[in-house]
Design a protein around this nucleic acid. Structure first.
Length: 341
DNA sequence: AATTCAGTCAACCGCCCAGGT
DNA sequence: TACCTGGGCGGTTGACTGAAT
């Protein structure tokens, strides 16, 4: 197959990105969008391969990224989604606004995995370790994931400490698995504590009762049905494309849903430069509010966004636009905002 | 103060898939 | 239909940091 290695002929730079490279890439995308990634490095004057540029943009430069520590709600949601999806990091990240698959993956491997093991849970199967071993060392992931979520719920219970376990108000685990059926349905909320939004999005309000979190799961992302709502997932490539305004006249559809209703707004000509500004706001108050702090235009149009790139100036390895990733002043997960999506 | 070790995370690699020709 | 190319994804690596010794 002779799969081309990234940048076969030309001598391309590799490794960490310099501030100058970041600036070039940001300037280029700000002006033109990314378009065809393979042409970006050339047009932007970078000696990188397109893949590298894409990765840098998605994982670090994108203006809508939420940096900083994962909240308990995010952690719980990751465990929950992993119990259903396995290592589908992109799909998991799609449910975590502002988080990238790489970030989620790293968080899982460096933190959650260990935490689960310490608690005697096999992170691959979400079953107790001894049971997982008996189950046939088959290496997790292969089996019927829907059958293990009750275990995942136990995990959540134990991790959460204060919350749940007894939780008589909790719906049975099956109700989390939901929804898969009820989504293809008529939109009737037939899940205890959860709602089946008529447009196909999934409510995890049952989940919220235990973890203090309310979220909507993109049914399509979970392969749960054909009529998935379009969640403004910042991690999805489609959203990225719309953000980048690749195609003039492109249409993005943003769905906001509450327990009682779902509304859909359609935006035409939404260039990504307007993220967090007027267009985003018009897309829906909730989404707009969630983006308020992004102020992408501040970075670009001030002509001096470089000063807002603290990473290098802080001399830290973690190069966060919003500052040191370990800084608690970093944007925190807004469960309410997400819940309102 | 120097060294070692473990943890974190950015970036790369290789594969797969979809779309175009 | 076969091939090519670009984009995306998951797994892995390696640089860097801070804690421990």
């Amino acid at each position: 197959m002779a799969k081309r290695a990234c940048g076969g002929k030309r001598k391309l730079r590799r490794g960490l990105w310099s501030p100058e490279e970041d600036e070039k890439l940001m300037n280029h995308i700000a002006k033109y969008g990314h378009g065809c990634w393979s042409s970006v490095p050339k047009l932007a004057g970078l000696e990188r391969c397109g893949k590298s540029c894409r990765l840098r943009w998605i994982n670090y430069l994108r203006p809508d990224l939420k940096r900083g520590a994962f909240s308990q709600e995010e952690e719980d949601l990751i465990i929950h989604l992993h119990s259903m999806l396995g290592n589908k990091w992109s799909q998991i990240a799609a449910q975590l606004p502002g988080r990238t698959d790489n970030e989620v993956k790293n968080f899982w491997n460096s933190y959650i995995k260990k935490k689960l093991r310490q608690r005697g849970i096999d992170p691959a199967t979400h079953k107790p370790l001894d049971e997982a071993a008996v189950a046939g060392g088959g290496g997790g992931g292969g089996g019927n994931r829907t059958a293990v979520f009750s275990d995942a719920e136990l995990i959540l219970s134990s991790i959460g400490g204060a919350h749940h376990l007894q939780a008589p108000h909790m719906p049975p685990p099956e109700s989390y698995m939901y929804s898969r059926c009820s989504t293809e349905c008529d939109g009737v909320a037939d899940v205890v504590g959860g709602g089946c939004i008529s447009d196909g999005s999934l409510s995890l309000s049952g989940y919220s009762q235990t973890a203090g979190f309310t979220g909507y799961v993109d049914a399509d992302a979970l392969h749960c049905g054909p009529a998935a709502a379009v969640i403004p997932s910042v991690s999805s490539s489609s959203t990225l494309n719309s953000m980048a305004g690749l195609s003039p006249g492109a249409t993005t559809t943003t769905t906001t849903a509450t327990d009682e209703q779902s509304t859909t707004t359609t935006n035409h000509d939404l260039p990504f430069l307007e993220l967090g500004t007027t267009s985003a706001a018009s897309a829906g108050d909730h989404y707009g509010a969630a983006l308020d702090e992004l102020k992408w235009s501040d970075y670009v149009f001030d002509g001096c966004y470089a000063h807002q790139l603290p990473p290098y100036h802080h001399g830290m390895q973690g190069h966060g636009i919003y500052g040191d990733s370990k800084d608690d002043t970093a944007v925190h997960f807004d469960a309410h905002g997400l819940g309102n999506w």
